[in-house]
């Protein structure tokens, strides 16, 4: 009689900056390649569609033990996720994520930022983190932290012009991300300071 394949264990979510991955421990069967399939269930399916599950075809019979579920976690509601194993015609029970996953819990990291003094122009270059992200950029003259100015950047283009600097004082900048869909912000990046220097770029 066929021994039932063990269900995948240690199922968990890695979610950073609105990118969500489901991972699990491999099911080990000597000399065999075990394959896995993933399904998800949103709050809508639980409450209005007979608790139906929806397969993720990119993660159907895959050998890897990770699945990118970002595209399917596209609402700020509680999701269930499950994985099962297949090998040589044998199939395991479903292993289900303990508890729900809601994208509101994603971890938000400070943005990668580069501050540039282009002559007397204070510029900042921000990493493009995807359509879900806005940036709040704070800048001030060193020593005048009480007169901080803010610029909200809704769409990352190449470089953002912040201010025209006076010669002499240092200008400091820090930034954080904001995700409207979940109404949360990251912590601030490290502060970077530059100083205007004639027409040449100057790093401190």
């Amino acid at each position: 009689e066929d021994v039932l394949l063990p269900a995948p264990q240690n199922i968990s979510i890695l979610s950073t900056n609105m990118k969500h991955f489901l991972t699990w421990s491999p099911v080990i069967i000597q000399g065999e390649t075990v394959r896995y399939s993933v399904e998800f269930q949103g709050e809508y399916e639980r409450e209005y569609a007979n608790e139906s599950w929806i397969p993720i075809c990119e993660c159907s019979l895959i050998a890897a033990t990770v699945c990118n579920i970002t595209e399917d976690i596209s609402a700020t509601v509680a999701y269930n996720l499950r994985v099962r194993a297949d090998v040589g015609g044998r199939r395991s029970e479903w292993g289900t994520l303990k508890g729900f996953f809601n994208r509101i819990t994603t971890s938000l990291t400070p943005p990668v930022m580069k501050v540039i003094a282009d002559g007397y122009h204070l510029l900042v270059e921000l990493e493009d983190m995807g359509p879900a992200f806005q940036f709040s950029v704070l800048y001030w003259k060193k020593g005048q932290e009480n007169r901080m100015q803010q610029k909200v950047v809704k769409e990352v283009s190449s470089v953002v012009h912040l201010d025209t600097m006076e010669a002499g004082p240092d200008y400091c900048v820090k930034a954080q991300t904001y995700v409207e869909a979940i109404n949360r912000s990251s912590s601030f990046s490290q502060t970077q300071c530059v100083r205007a220097q004639g027409g040449t770029s100057m790093w401190l």
């Binding site: 949103g42 709050e43 809508y44 209005y48 929806i54 596209s74 609402a75």
Partner: peptide, 15 residues
């Protein structure tokens, strides 16, 4: 399956 996934995405957003 692809259509069903997108319907789920819209439905959960509507919810």
């Amino acid at each position: 399956s692809y259509v069903n996934r997108k319907i789920s995405s819209i439905a959960n957003s509507f919810l």
